[in-house]
Amino acid sequence: MKHIEWVIEVSGLTKTFGDFTAVDAISFKVQKGEIFGFLGANGAGKTTAMKMLIGISVPTSGAARVAGYDVFTESEKVKKHIGYMSQRFALYDDLTVKENIAFFGGIYGLGKDRIQKKSKQLIEELGMESEANSLVRSLPLGWKQKLAFSVALLHDPKVVFLDEPTGGVDPITRRQFWEMIYKAAHLGTTVFVTTHYMDEAEYCDRVSMMVNGAIEALDAPHRLKEKFGVESMNEVFLKLARA
């Protein structure tokens, strides 16, 4: 049997702010190439949990390894091997498509040649040849989203974190975006995605459901539906949230 490569290993991860426990001893593992859905209502603690995994928030207790490195002691190495796309598709509005690619490639330490090659390839894949030298400001939201995702993958990270990546875009663009996610996962990149669209949860290999800081359910979507005896992920979520 093939050895399983765990890209994210979390055990007992906790974050408290004073008396309030935002993340309550969560544990889970994600393997290489998996699309892992991190679900929960707003305020359930998913953003806080993700911030600890990407190294911009220090956990109160517990342990976590991301891309093979400890988030407590090796956060610098973690940062090199992960990609991140924020819910605002943060790119620089007043820089062109090419300049954005060059800038983000640069801060991940990619060489000039590699940036140029990647940039050309990426622009071709996105079909943005005629927009390569336009300011990002002038692009439609869906394009910004795809560009931001590609930029997050620029340095070939082992795992990419997507924070509500489909907010505010139309269903067709969302569908296209999920195709990009599948492609990245197929090429071996682990995808860790938070969302509150329950239909998107169906596209994930496995999902975790967070309620009040704790993970209440974690399995493949079809198994969860079986377990709760319902037809859709939305119903699974409602059952859990009301319990």
Binding site: I54, G55, I56, E76, K79, K80, I82, Y84, S86, Q87, R88, A90, L91, Y92, D93, F104, I107, Y108, G109, F161
Partner: peptide, 13 residues
């Protein structure tokens, strides 16, 4: 405001 600060903080910089 733009959210780019967050992206920069997640980067190795």
């Amino acid at each position: 405001e733009m959210g780019t600060m967050e992206v920069l903080l997640v980067s190795p910089l």
